[in-house]
């Protein structure tokens, strides 16, 4: 219910303050090759994400979508080629990039509150400030009453919302999300999609979203990167939303939205 009510507080994308001027290159893959023990996932892969852009990454499981996020998060280094973050070579995790993992990455031995505070603590944020920010985001995600529980005491959907709160509490200009809404029911999913939409509009974040849902990709992001059926990823197939971004969440019965979905399905050969 919190997730719905917050909708009214948000600023539409058009009015959102540009975080550092649009069109600036944030993430750049320059002929990057990467693989695990001889099995190549990316081969001479080039891709540019600009400031404030939202990207979905779609494709079958086990194709290297999560690895792509790991590379951007600085958790893996390219085998060959260059990976730049704002023009600088990327050497390890950056404080400007936030990552939410598929299994939410919450530490089971910390309470929800302390899980959300952890990233802030690592970044040296003082305790009262930490507490305030964590409580704030837990409330916005509608899980404030779970603050003193442990992750094992929550439902899958609640855990996912806590993980989102932890990510957003870091206030990073770049958000990487690995199937962030996979474990929630249909109603919560639509609510959280609105929340994500609103947050992006409010914060002007650059977003890379790995998802299995064509609708979610078409709804939340205006750029879609389609992985092939078999690795390695060489020449990425990129689709761009034909209708303008900004304002309210696109209606699901909007013909432009449905056309975009159909286009993505075609690219996925569904």
């Amino acid at each position: 219910m919190d997730t719905l009510s917050m909708q009214t507080r948000l600023i539409p994308a058009a009015a959102a303050p540009a975080w550092n001027g649009r069109g600036v290159e944030v993430i750049a893959f320059d002929a990057v090759s990467f693989g695990y023990s001889g099995a190549p996932l990316l081969e001479r892969f080039s891709w540019i994400v600009r400031e404030g852009e939202a990207w979905s990454v779609l494709g079958p499981s086990g194709i290297g979508k999560t690895t792509l996020l790991y590379l951007i998060a600085g958790l893996r280094r390219p085998d060959r080629g260059a990976l730049r973050f704002r023009g600088q070579p990327l050497n390890g995790p950056s404080h400007d990039v936030g990552l939410m993992l598929q299994d939410y990455g919450l530490l089971p031995w910390l309470t929800v509150q302390r899980n959300v505070e952890l990233g802030l603590k690592i970044r040296g944020v003082a305790r009262p400030e930490r507490r305030r920010i964590a409580a704030d985001w837990l409330a916005r995600m509608g899980v404030a009453d779970a603050a003193r529980r442990f992750p094992a005491q929550l439902s899958g959907g609640q855990r996912q919302r806590v993980a989102l709160a932890r990510l957003l509490a870091l206030d990073t200009p770049v958000l990487l999300l690995d199937e962030p809404l996979s474990a929630v029911d249909e109603i919560t999913r639509e609510r959280l999609q609105r929340t994500l939409w609103g947050i992006r509009a409010e914060l002007g974040s650059t977003l890379v979203l790995v998802t299995h849902s064509v609708e979610e990709a078409a709804l939340l992001t205006e750029n879609v990167l389609v992985f092939p059926d078999t690795p390695p990823l060489r020449d990425p197939l990129v689709l761009r939303r034909p209708f303008a971004a900004g304002g309210a969440v696109p209606a699901r019965d909007d013909p432009d939205f449905q056309r975009f979905c159909a286009e993505i399905r075609k690219a996925l050969r569904l």
């Binding site: 958790l75 995790p93 993992l101 598929q102 299994d103 990455g105 919450l106 952890l118 690592i122």
Partner: peptide, 16 residues
């Protein structure tokens, strides 16, 4: 490994 990736992505060092 996911647990470690998750905390590494937050910028954790050896002590963390």
């Amino acid at each position: 490994p996911e647990t470690l990736e998750s905390i590494n992505a937050l910028g954790a060092n050896h002590w963390h």
